[in-house]
Amino acid sequence: MGAFLDKPKTEKYNSHGEGNGLRYGLSSMQGWRVEMEDAHTAVLGLPAPGMTNWSFFAVYDGHAGSRVANYCSKHLLEHIMSASFGNGGTQGSQTGSDSSASDPTTPPSVDRIKNGIRTGFLKIDEHMRTFSDLRNGMDRSGSTAVGILLSSDHIFFINCGDSRAVLYRNSHVCFSTLDHKPCNPRERERIQNAGGSVMIQRVNGSLAVSRALGDYDYKCVDGKGPTEQLVSPEPEVFDMVRAPEQDQFVILACDGIWDVMSNEELCEFVKSRLEVTNDLERVCNEVVDTCLHKGSRDNMSVVLVCMPNAPKVSDEAVRKDAELNKYLESRVEEMLSQPGEEGFPDLVTVMRNLSTDGGMPSLPPGGGLASKRSVVEAVYNRLNPYREEDGPSCFI
């Protein structure tokens, strides 16, 4: 599950939108992987009576192929909605007295939504098992899924696998979903009870996640239900009451992002970029580029959902960012104006020299010098006529 290219594919897919008091941007990049296996969903306004003020966002990180991730990106929301608003929702509800079960215009209760999300995951996993290529083993793909379902009052965090969602509230990381890794005690116990083992932090020494959609090779233990298999399709669902005066943004991302940036680093970096630009696609592109330059070897996808209280563009931040860019440009010009005996330094050497520059103005928090590699590279490419077209992408 880990073949790599000779050089990364850096073309990006971008999208953005606005509605329901939210703004979102997203970016995805294939990177060093031989195939793009990530997918995403972004829906402002759910197609159900009384639900136009609800929104849904998700990131899917596929493995062993893109089939499951792509199908879920198109159909998971319908399964959740069917379970929450249709007959499936009535069956999944813990209480038969939920008034929304009989009145489709009444928003469902928190418990019913949470049960509907869980039921939707189990239903789509059961449905995909009927696909001939997945059933006969011709396609062995699976996918993580991380998402948020937002109403005007609540945020439902949904996670199955090791992609992650974080909430930035009052200038702090307020909440993060929990990664489902085989070495987690509860996950390990389920795996062992199903007759499996955890070796080199993987299910049976092979799969690096303990919950996922698809992956039917790990869901065929006789006598065990769908949530008791080696790999479970059951999501963990958390609900939080929204705090309009404090909530700033939510980030959804696959592990290609989290492998090289912590929750705090990524949120601080996004905050610093939102103070420089209100173009959310640009912010997401900078996240993906920065993670590539920090050494991520995986597909990378990020969705940024900004609430009304998100950081605003600051004149001072814009000025400081421009000054930093100008400083970097002048330093690169200086290094390339006096080539040594071996000629022009390569880009990696330039970046390493800059990393030890004691006079450097403050770099973007969380992103560091890696987040400014494109600025350095632009000057380097302009001034060095002997550059190699395809040098290393990571300078660390």
Rank of each mutant, 00 (worst) to 15 (best):
S152D: 08
V270G: 03
T105W: 04
R112I: 06
K320Q: 11
P108I: 05
R33Y: 11
V379N: 05
S15Y: 05
R319K: 14
K7V: 04
V146K: 09
E78T: 07
M307S: 10
K294N: 01
R202F: 01
D239S: 14
V376S: 07
D179I: 08
E275V: 09
W258H: 06
L76C: 04
D298Y: 11
K224G: 03
S27W: 04
F269E: 01
G142I: 12
R186D: 00
T177R: 09
R67Q: 14
P244F: 09
V283I: 02
E78C: 01
L324M: 09
D239V: 13
N325P: 08
A69G: 01
L150Q: 12
P8R: 15
L230T: 14
C72I: 07
Y60L: 07
G295K: 11
S197N: 06
K326V: 05
S262D: 02
E281L: 03
V283H: 08
M36K: 15
V34E: 10
D98I: 03
Q338H: 15
N170R: 15
E236I: 08
S296L: 04
S97M: 12
L76P: 04
S66M: 11
G195A: 02
C160P: 02
V241F: 09
P233G: 00
V34R: 14
N70I: 04
V283K: 07
F269W: 08
S66T: 08
Y24V: 02
M1H: 14
D346Y: 07
Q229H: 04
P108R: 05
V313Y: 10
T349M: 12
E389P: 03
H127C: 04
D111S: 15
L178D: 08
Q229Y: 11
T144M: 12
G62L: 13
V270F: 08
H40G: 06
D6F: 05
F249D: 00
Q338E: 06
P244I: 03
A83P: 04
C284G: 00
L213E: 02
K123M: 03
M138F: 07
D179S: 13
T227F: 07
R202Y: 00
F4S: 14
A194E: 01
D222G: 13
T277F: 10
P364C: 10
T95G: 05
G225F: 07
V68E: 00
G65T: 05
H180L: 02
Y168L: 12
